Amino acid sequence: MLRFIQKILLTLVSISISLLLLFAIFMLLVEEEKNFEISMLLPFAIVVFSALSFVFHLKTLSFYRKDVITKAHYRKDKPFWIANLVFAFSLFLLALFFVISFTKF
């Protein structure tokens, strides 16, 4: 049951990050009428990988409903696995960037 709750939390976190960054991009481009710059590609890429991570978590959610997880025989979709790993790595790099920025500040 704990794994199922963790999976739901991961799903909610991935979609929350995606929606938050989408809202930030919307505010910059539409409300403040800024031009699209190259530096905006990073948040946009994180949004894409976050959405793919959300799909990955939804696809694998059914495997965590049982108390004892038996060998799950399912087709492992490599694009979703890779997107999920890239999303996690990009969040790690983003956190590292913020830590370095705050230590210099």
Rank of each mutant, 00 (worst) to 15 (best):
A72Y: 09
L61P: 01
V47W: 00
V86D: 05
Y74R: 14
D67T: 10
T70M: 12
K78D: 07
L93H: 01
A83E: 04
T70V: 14
F63N: 11
F44H: 00
A95L: 13
A83M: 08
L85V: 04
V86E: 07
V68L: 13
L91N: 12
L52C: 04
A88C: 08
A83N: 06
A72I: 15
R65E: 14
F80R: 08
V48N: 06
L96M: 14
L61Q: 03
L91T: 01
K78P: 06
I46V: 15
I46H: 04
T60R: 03
A83Q: 07
K71V: 10
Y74M: 11
S62H: 09
F49T: 10
F97N: 07
S53C: 10
L96H: 09
S62R: 11
V47L: 02
S50K: 05
S90P: 03
T70N: 14
F92C: 10
F80S: 09
Y74L: 12
K66G: 04
S90A: 12
F56I: 03
L58P: 02
H73Q: 09
A51R: 04
S90I: 08
L93W: 11
L91E: 07
K59N: 05
F80H: 08
W81A: 04
L93Y: 07
S90H: 01
S53D: 02
T70F: 13
S62T: 07
K66A: 15
R65G: 14
I69K: 13
P79F: 11
H73P: 00
H73K: 15
V48E: 06
L93I: 03
K59T: 02
I82F: 13
V55S: 04
V47Q: 07
K59P: 00
F44A: 11
I46N: 02
D77T: 09
F80I: 01
L58K: 00
N84W: 06
A51T: 12
A83D: 03
I69F: 13
H57Y: 13
R65H: 11
D67E: 13
L61M: 14
F89I: 04
D77M: 11
F89T: 08
F89R: 06
L58V: 03
S62F: 05
Y64P: 02
T70L: 15
D67N: 15
K59S: 03
V48P: 06
F63P: 00
A72W: 09
F49I: 08
S62Q: 11
L94K: 10
T60L: 01
F63L: 09
F87K: 04
F92V: 12
F54I: 02
A88V: 07
P79C: 08
A88W: 02
K78S: 09
A51Q: 04
H57I: 00
K76G: 00
L61R: 01
A45V: 13
Y64I: 01
F80P: 05
L52M: 13
P79Q: 05
F92K: 09
L91A: 06
L85K: 13
F89W: 10
F92R: 12
P79W: 08
L91Y: 03
K76F: 14
S62K: 14
F92L: 15
A95E: 06
L91P: 01
F49V: 12
F89P: 00
L58W: 01
F87E: 01
A95S: 15
L85Q: 10
H57D: 04
I69M: 13
V55L: 12
V86F: 08
A95G: 15
V86G: 05
